[in-house]
């Protein structure tokens, strides 16, 4: 209840409903989904750019290069299987993210500079 896995629905759909009769040729339903992270420049973090289908990790990096860096957007790429990412549950938003609101004592600006402390 407290977590969901990206791409889980399509995975379940696949394993629970094997195709009847003749095997179908592999389509995107057979290629797993990958999440792509692009670092635009040295010193910055990798930022999530989107997702894609690829048969394996190596091809996922090549596809990411074609889909997400063709306008000179990046200097480095990460790909990760979507099913390997654990996310917070959208339904648990209140519990997860509402509670820090109003707790201004968690911010440095809440505090006054103490007179007795030098070099602060």
């Amino acid at each position: 209840m407290s977590s969901a896995v990206i791409g889980q629905d399509s995975q379940n759909h696949q394993s629970n409903q094997p195709s009847q009769g003749a095997q179908k040729p592999p389509t995107s339903a057979g290629w797993p989904l990958w999440e792509v992270f692009v670092r635009s420049s040295r010193g910055l973090s990798h930022v999530h750019a989107g997702s894609l289908h690829a048969p394996d990790a190596e091809m996922a990096v090549r596809n990411a290069r074609d889909l997400y860096t063709r306008r000179n957007e990046g200097v480095s790429l990460w790909v990760v299987r979507s099913t390997d990412i654990t996310t917070s549950d959208p339904d648990a938003k209140d519990m997860m993210f509402e509670s820090p609101q109003g707790k201004d004592y968690r911010h440095a600006t809440y505090y006054k500079e103490s007179e007795g402390v030098k070099h602060l």
Partner: peptide, 15 residues
């Protein structure tokens, strides 16, 4: 001093 100061996460340049 951190990397490319002019860069952004969504930089698009023709190069």
């Amino acid at each position: 001093s951190f990397g490319d100061a002019a860069a952004s996460a969504t930089r698009v340049t023709p190069g």
